[in-house]
């Protein structure tokens, strides 16, 4: 589904990704972990097509297409979804309206008829249950005045509505209390199937207690320095990142 081959990227003059290799197949959940500043969020942003970052080398294939050639909106419509670490507020635009535009833009791209109001509401009701989100929240301006937990749940709700092939969760657990974390993870687990895949970017292991990954990769200094199963995450939790940093720095030296 997603093949990242020696991906390099920088912001302004600063090299951040220094050759990432990653292969994600349908049905898999991959977790990217790493200390602050290792390039985790950069990887998520580059895949989504944020223009602040310049890709300086490597390639990314998504569903058989050259991802880097696609505009951010086309990437989204091809089925790539990013749950933002810091979801933005758009005053005056109701969440419902926003999601409706998004859903119908995607349908148009795929050559499908737009959903009418009744169909849309039905789908919405169904997905609302998944993330235990309230109707009143969806009538309010997008993310405006939402609590941290509400914003994150809203991201997962949008993901549920858009049914992406690959969802990237960028530190979705940050700022969540344990209940919100459980709700978010539940949503993800229910949406999981054999045809879609998830890339979970996180600093802490605790999210992985709820969303169990098939693979765990450790990102450090712009490279994936270790890959393994969920046991690797457990090891990190126990020992901290320092032991890996030390090992890698030694290898590099």
């Amino acid at each position: 589904m997603l093949k990242i081959n020696h991906l390099q990227a920088r912001i302004e003059e600063k090299e951040i990704l220094k050759g990432i290799n990653l292969d994600i197949k349908p049905g898999e959940i991959h977790a990217i972990m790493g200390p602050n500043g290792s390039g985790k969020s950069t990887l998520a942003s580059v895949l989504a097509g944020r223009s602040d970052y310049e890709v300086t080398g490597g390639s990314v294939e998504f569903m058989g297409k050259d991802l880097l050639e696609l505009s951010p909106e086309d990437r989204a419509k091809e089925g790539l979804f990013l749950a933002f670490q810091y979801p933005v507020e758009i005053p005056g635009v109701s969440t419902t309206n926003f999601i409706k535009s998004a859903v119908n833009e995607k349908r148009k791209y795929l050559g499908q008829e737009p959903l009418d109001a009744a169909q849309f509401l039905r789908t919405m009701k169904e997905k609302m249950k998944l993330v235990e989100i309230d109707q009143s929240l969806l009538s309010r301006s997008l993310n405006e005045g939402f609590s941290g937990g509400e914003k994150k749940r809203n991201e997962i709700f949008q993901m549920a509505m858009l049914e992406p092939k690959l969802a990237i969760l960028d530190e979705t657990d940050s700022g969540l209390d344990i209940d919100a974390l459980r709700i978010v993870a539940n949503g993800v687990n229910q949406l999981r199937n054999k045809d879609n895949a998830f890339l979970v970017v996180t600093h802490y292991q605790r999210l992985l207690d709820y969303i169990v990954p098939d693979f765990v990769h450790v990102l450090y200094k712009g490279r994936i320095v270790r890959s393994g199963t969920k046991e690797l995450a457990k090891e990190l939790e126990e020992k901290g990142y320092d032991f890996i940093k030390a090992e890698v720095d030694q290898e590099l030296a």
Partner: peptide, 11 residues
């Protein structure tokens, strides 16, 4: 804001 919309498939 624009990028957020873009990422949801809105040009």
């Amino acid at each position: 804001q624009i990028f957020y919309c873009n990422q949801r498939g809105i040009d």
